[in-house]
Design a protein around this nucleic acid. Structure first.
Length: 342
DNA sequence: GATGCGTGGCG
DNA sequence: TCGCCAAGCAT
């Protein structure tokens, strides 16, 4: 009987996708494609890859580029830290490695923007080093084939996936094996409706045997939302808006937002706004918190004894003409740097 | 370990 | 419609 690895590689040889970054195994193009494809769909990344390689054909061209130009090539793709790291990394490779990538996994991991997944992908595709590249696709396939019921996000779960994955990965063709699993995950072993009837390794899948393929991978249980009760002050005067800087902790740490007071219960929030000129209220969801809010005009601001933070007055255009829902949207629109606002 | 980062596709 | 999430990483 054929091994599971053999079945996967056979399927790959017959069905592999024709993608621009598969034309070469040189580390530069593999690296660029892997960075572009982080949290990004193949169809979205393709045109960026083509333009990027055309604009920066080698690691030397990239290392000599201005950050502005790299960011321009990245414009519209998102996660712009990737673009900044890609430039830093190119400079390191040229400056410290004479323009060729280090082949040791540990050295790859030290490069900016390269984590466990990308290091494994580069090492396996370029130099046939037997590392499993645990991306979303391969996590899903491994969780189903071995019926792993522990979430990848737990460190204990991560250890299981790494152990099983390392055992799983083909030692003969690890690069093809990783890419095969990604293709399989993208076309057959889908997150929601896996096409098990077309799967080349159906007979090896432990989850399918007990009909739990839909329950894999196990996701971390969502924490139930915490209720919070906040009274906001919208204080707009002389075309300036009052903001406060948050402490270096909590959900809006170090950000600027409207002055506010927090109450322990909805009852106390409603009691506090009693008699005040409240004009909008509602619930805002943010990071497993349900924030019940009431906003009042700011004339009463000075009388609030609980308001201890120092106010920062920020010039804002035309706030008096904004409809209330738009204004309220601003309340939860936190500002990293009040000085840059106008 | 939890959180932020960006855009586009999907049911 | 809109929440979920897709070839993760850094902090």
């Amino acid at each position: 009987m054929a091994s599971i690895q053999h079945s996967i590689l056979y399927w790959f040889d017959e069905n592999k996708r024709d993608l621009p970054w598969r034309e070469s195994k040189n580390p530069y193009s593999v690296w660029i494609s892997e960075i572009i494809l982080q949290q990004t769909r193949v169809e979205q990344g393709k045109p960026y890859y083509d333009r990027f390689m055309n604009r920066f054909p080698s690691v030397f061209d990239l290392a000599n580029a201005d950050e502005e130009d790299v960011l321009l090539a990245w414009k519209g793709l998102g996660y712009y830290t990737r673009a900044r790291n890609i430039l830093k990394c190119a400079k390191t490779i040229v400056g410290e490695y004479g323009g060729s990538f280090p082949k040791e996994r540990e050295e790859l991991l030290n490069l900016p923007g390269i984590g466990e997944y990308t290091a494994a992908a580069i090492a396996s595709i370029c130099w046939d080093q037997p590392y499993i590249a645990l991306d979303g696709n391969i996590i899903r396939i491994v969780s189903r084939v071995f019926n792993i019921d522990s979430p990848f996000s737990y460190s204990s779960g991560k250890a299981i996936f790494k152990t099983m994955g390392q055992e799983f990965v083909s030692k003969d063709r690890p690069g093809d094996f990783n890419q095969a699993l990604m293709d399989l995950g993208a076309s057959i072993c889908l997150p929601k409706s896996p096409r098990c009837d077309q799967c080349p390794i159906l007979g090896f899948c432990e989850a399918k045997k007990i009909n739990k393929q839909h329950e894999r991978p196990v996701k971390l249980a969502k924490r139930k939302p915490i209720n919070r009760f906040l009274l906001f002050f919208v204080h707009y005067k002389n075309k300036k808006l009052a903001l406060i800087k948050q402490e270096n902790s909590g959900i809006w740490k170090n950000l600027y937002l409207f002055p506010h007071v927090e109450y322990p219960s909805e009852h106390q929030l409603l009691e506090a706004k009693e008699g005040l000129d409240s004009f909008v209220s509602g619930i805002h969801l943010l990071s497993h918190q349900r924030i019940h809010y009431v906003a009042i005009k700011g004339e009463r601001l000075k009388k609030q004894e609980d308001m201890q933070q120092e106010l920062v007055w920020v010039p804002v255009k035309d706030i008096e003409n904004l409809p209330i829902p738009r204004l309220m949207a601003h309340i939860f629109e936190v500002w990293p740097n009040a000085k840059t606002q106008d």
